[in-house]
Simulated scan of single mutants.
Amino acid sequence: MTGTAPLDLLSTEHLLDDEERAIRDTVRKFVDDRVRPNVAEWYEQGIDDDTVRETAREAGKLGLLGMHLEGYGCAGTNATSYGLACMELEAGDSGVRSLVSVQGSLAMFAIHAFGSEEQKQRWLPGMAAGELIGCFGLTEADFGSNPAGMRTRARRDGDDWVLDGTKMWITNGSVADVAVVWAKTDDGVRGFLVPAGTPGFSAPKITRKLSLRASITSELVLENVRLPADAVLPEVSSLRGPLSCLNEARFGIVFGALGAARDCLQTALDYAASREVFDRSLSSYQITQTKLADMTLELQKGYLLALHLGRLKDAGELQPRQISFGKLNNVREALAIARECRTILGASGITLEYSPLRHANNLESVLTYEGTSEVHQLVIGQALTGESAFT
């Protein structure tokens, strides 16, 4: 095949600076060398703890964990570079991007933004290196889109805190060295650092998944978990804390979903060029070319949107509703692209030899987590009308 790559069609390379291109290319090589040869097996078998830890250490050596944070061993890159890294990671698999984004944008960001200096020194350098893994406990089985309804409680008992409750759908949960757990208290929603092995704390794996199988997902169970006074994140006592962390992670998804879509589209292009149907290449048929053209339009538009949001974030001007705009559009379009690419591959598309259906299954989760599409539609609707439709 001698055609133009989908993201080269509009000649957008000049929109990135030298450092951003270097980071993108470094992460792409990591994915090519480390993820692509193994991801089908990880997905089929379900990834194991040792592989997650090894992958985290390798990501840490590349400076990918908490890369957009300053100090404590973090790389301190700009937001656009972080987004580009997410795009390359998710081109490998959404589960690998989830490992990096949950570590950096949820667990590490929470400690970095709301923790004490002692907490930052204790946890962040090891997490940046990938020697320690964190998870983020906000979602509950009955309270996903409505985190204000959470039932997990923390009460004072002398100088200690005692936590009771459960969290659900927690990436990295069973392999994490520390969990950032959000709970209701008498003075608002507070974040707590719960080290693995604390009595009363367990993180059973969620199994039989049809999506994100190259990622560990767990439940967090807290039964009379006693923590010292210095386990609480001191700088926030409201939902502003966890929601600001989610905005950080959603920003990465705006870019990340495009990586999955790009990989699907490139796979479909390569397959169509080599597959002969009635003595002609599949790529020479009009119906195939119209599919490829339409998907490339949406991929390139999503990429321009992501870069725009990245520049806004780097300028300190990005608003939460704009992140909702990006996640809603890019994940929805990426899922549509993955499904359409599967049709080009025909029956071959249902196997793990090719990536589109694996990406599509993963994107079904990405469509839901860190804000469902319906929630983001309502965020945009509220911005347009000035009226809340959430209640």
Rank of each mutant, 00 (worst) to 15 (best):
S11D: 12
D279L: 15
A129D: 04
E298N: 13
E88W: 02
R321E: 14
G371I: 03
G92S: 00
Q382V: 11
A214F: 05
A315Q: 11
Q103L: 04
D270R: 14
V35F: 05
S94C: 14
S281P: 08
V181K: 02
V221L: 12
T185A: 04
I47H: 00
A141L: 15
A91T: 02
N330I: 03
I350E: 10
G63E: 01
Q121W: 06
L212D: 04
H308R: 10
E298W: 08
T4G: 05
G95F: 04
K313H: 05
A260H: 04
A360H: 12
P320H: 08
I344V: 12
S98H: 04
L106S: 06
A40E: 05
A79Y: 02
T171V: 04
E223I: 10
P37R: 13
V375W: 14
A22V: 06
I344Q: 02
V194F: 01
A268T: 02
A179L: 07
M127P: 06
A315I: 01
Q289C: 11
Y72R: 03
T139V: 15
N172I: 06
V232Q: 10
L227W: 01
P356D: 07
G71S: 01
V31L: 02
L9T: 14
L258K: 01
E353I: 15
L15W: 13
P356T: 13
A129Q: 13
G165E: 00
P147V: 14
K61S: 10
S281V: 10
A338T: 09
V221G: 06
G188K: 03
T55L: 15
E13F: 07
I47T: 01
F114R: 01
T12K: 08
H359W: 09
S116N: 01
D160T: 10
C86K: 02
L297K: 15
A129H: 04
L304D: 05
R339Y: 08
L163M: 03
D157T: 08
L269V: 09
E41M: 13
L89G: 00
L378C: 11
E219C: 12
P204A: 09
D33T: 09
R97C: 08
G73E: 00
Q266S: 07
D93V: 08
P320K: 07
A214Y: 04
W42S: 03
E88K: 00
K291I: 14
H112T: 06
L222P: 04
A129K: 14
P242T: 09
